[in-house]
């Protein structure tokens, strides 16, 4: 479960070129005479570079699901993420449910990969059973919400090709300029043909994402709200909204109590740790 946008799986040559220059790149450094694909990937790498070093992250997440008639359902969970320094793999994450109460204590452990399938284990507290599950189900709804598994777990930038489509005023954040990017999934079993992503040019924060389904029709729009910088560096949005244009349903995620560099280690992200996850 990736709750931020960050690196992984970038072609080695690009990693070396970006690592050679430690200073943060600006809009003017990135928009060169190169092709839109090269600029797009350079923007993605910069977005990613700026988020390196959070080590681990814990937050509470409340999810509000609304159907077309305005009826609400709520979920409460805690998310824990362990940054994996290797660029060839994604992060490890643990998701622990508190609400609805019948799934209290249920936990999902994921080892994100880049183009390989993720590894996932589900803990069922009533049986004390740890079950390895198929991670093929990328486009299915996550706990009945408008977020698909891939919307939440799939933001390693190496999972997509990136193309720079120009500069536009940010759709959500007022008075800011955004890079407009078209990203196409490179991994198997995605529910999307493409995503259009707006990222602000100052702090490289995701502002809005349009999702296009397998028929290339706009299906969902995600927006990010109330960004805060943690440890003066790591920008996180307090609110994510996802609207499904085809069903009229929507889901909002509210993040609370962000903590970074929490002291969590690999042993807190293991099959054995699922049994004492609370």
């Amino acid at each position: 479960m990736k709750m931020n946008w960050k690196r992984a799986g970038i072609p080695l040559v690009l990693v070396i070129s970006s690592a050679a220059v430690q200073a943060e790149k600006t809009k003017d450094d990135l928009i060169t005479a190169e092709s839109p694909e090269v600029i797009g990937e350079a923007i993605a790498i910069e977005l990613d570079e700026r988020d390196i070093g959070f080590v681990s992250q814990v937050s509470k997440m409340e999810m509000v699901l609304r159907n077309a008639y305005g009826q609400e359902n709520r979920r409460e969970m805690e998310t824990r993420i362990l940054e994996r320094p290797e660029r060839t793999v994604g992060d490890k994450s643990m998701l622990v449910f508190f609400n609805p109460r019948d799934i209290n204590g249920t936990a999902l452990l994921s080892f994100a990969e880049i183009l390989e399938p993720d590894q996932q284990w589900l803990y069922l507290p009533a049986l004390k059973r740890v079950k390895r599950i198929s991670s093929k189900n990328k486009s299915g709804p996550f706990v009945g919400s408008e977020f698909a598994f891939e919307d939440i777990t799939g933001n390693e930038i190496g999972k997509y090709s990136w193309r720079f489509d120009g500069l536009e005023p940010c759709p959500v954040m007022a008075n800011l300029e955004c890079f407009k990017l078209t990203t196409v999934p490179k991994y198997e079993h995605s529910g999307y043909t493409k995503r259009i992503v707006w990222v602000d040019v100052e702090e490289f924060r995701a502002d809005k994402v349009d999702y296009y389904d397998r028929k290339d029709a706009l299906i969902k729009t995600q927006t990010f709200h109330s960004y805060k910088a943690y440890l003066n560096k790591f920008w996180r949005a307090d609110v994510w909204k996802m609207v499904n244009h085809q069903t009229g349903k929507s889901t909002e995620l509210f993040f609370k109590g962000y903590q970074f560099k929490t002291g969590l280690t690999d042993s807190d992200f293991s099959k054995a740790s699922l049994k004492r996850v609370r």
Binding site: V58, G257, K261, T262, G263
Partner: peptide
């Protein structure tokens, strides 16, 4: 130090 930080984090983070 790490242990102290961890305990601080969890006591702030979780009333549980």
């Amino acid at each position: 130090k790490r242990t102290a930080m961890l305990s601080l984090v969890f006591s702030v983070m979780s009333t549980k």
